[in-house]
């Protein structure tokens, strides 16, 4: 299988990036904000995909990275009057730091043990946010709209309440993570990660320090997830503990699986599909947990490779 950065691949990714950008001029208002939100969440899923899809490490604690980004950004704006950009980068740095610390510890395990360690850390992180409620304001959370100054680039001021700032902020965030995924997938690093996914022992025998590679994947994955969390806080102006709860560790897994783990396009397709599935279903039934549960089951039983994965298998073999 050739997964290298070919003309076709580059063209496909750039046209998706461009298409998403152009979408804002055509979409009606409601779908405009939806797409903005989907792109932020798809960034979260793209981060998850680096670890799960390419490296084969399933985590049930990714909400901790999302929350690390979200809280570092949110708290620095709320208490320290940080500007949007510095708060955003602080968010990424915090998520990366959490990922390094966590990885040094958790990557000694693998498979199901790794999964449970991630889950336990995720839960501990959630409880920690509740524990320091005098600072984090606990489950109730806080809003940033009264504290966040508009972003200034040159002469231009961009207020975060402006829908197109939201859209384009989300677009930049997603595009970077998307292109980064493409680059990783095509790079030697990506190929080592896939080798680890397929057979950790053999990769080790080939002379690769798989522990280091996994740590790298985890840090990249956690940082992207953290960037999504930071972006969410800035663009949607809310920081709360519910984003650290276990459900938000299950979501990126679900989105990635639905779209296709180990494909660059999967996270976006999965997040978008799930979003509209729930949105449309909630118009007919309150039982949307069924939709979540049912789609997980259907995926596992019949489409373990997800939407993009199945397309790749059947038709477009060159998809990265």
């Amino acid at each position: 299988m050739n997964r290298r950065l070919t003309h076709k691949v580059l063209l496909l990714h750039l046209s998706i990036v461009a298409g998403l950008f152009l979408a804002q001029f055509f979409l009606p208002e409601y779908h405009h904000t939806n797409l903005a939100r989907i792109m932020v969440l798809a960034t979260f899923a793209a981060g998850y995909n680096v670890l799960f899809g390419y490296t084969g490490l399933m985590s049930l604690g990714h909400a901790m990275f999302f929350a690390a980004g979200m809280y570092a950004t949110g708290l620095s704006v709320y208490y320290l009057d940080f500007g949007a950009l510095s708060a955003f980068f602080l968010g990424i740095a915090a998520a990366a730091a959490v990922a390094v610390l966590f990885g040094l510890f958790a990557l000694r395990t693998s498979g199901v043990s790794f999964l449970i360690v991630t889950m336990m850390f995720g839960q501990a992180c959630y409880l920690t946010i509740l524990y320091f409620n005098t600072i984090t304001l606990g489950d109730q959370g806080f809003t940033l709209s009264n504290n966040l100054a508009p972003l200034e680039i040159g002469q231009q001021q961009f207020a975060f309440s402006n829908p197109s700032v939201k859209f384009n902020g989300a677009w930049i965030l997603f595009s970077i993570s998307f292109v980064l995924s493409m680059v990783i997938a095509a790079s030697p690093l990506g190929r080592v990660l896939v080798a680890i996914r397929e057979n950790d022992e053999r990769t080790k025998l080939l002379g690769y320090n798989t522990y280091l590679y996994k740590l790298m994947a985890l840090v990249v994955s956690g940082s992207i997830a953290g960037a999504a969390g930071a972006g969410y806080a800035l663009l949607f102006s809310y920081v709360g503990a519910s984003f650290a709860a276990i459900l938000y560790s299950i979501y990126p897994l679900l989105w990635t699986l639905l779209g296709g783990a180990g494909t660059t396009l999967g996270p976006l397709i999965g997040t978008g599909t799930m979003f509209y599935l729930i949105d449309i279903a909630s118009g007919y039934t309150t039982a949307y947990l069924f939709v979540v549960g049912g789609s997980l089951l259907i995926l596992v039983l019949w489409f373990p490779k997800g939407i993009v994965g199945s397309i790749r298998d059947r038709w477009i073999k060159w998809l990265p």
């Binding site: 290298r4 950065l5 580059l10 680039i153 231009q156 961009f158 402006n162 384009n168 930049i172």
Partner: peptide
């Protein structure tokens, strides 16, 4: 980034170009 077709995609210039394009587009779109 190696490519079978011999395209050289240089990181820095790509990012620069993207930044310029993005900035312009956002300014335009807002």
């Amino acid at each position: 980034f190696p490519s079978s077709d011999g395209i050289d995609v240089s990181k820095r210039s790509t990012i620069k170009a993207a930044a310029a394009v993005t900035g312009g587009l956002i300014a335009a779109s807002t």
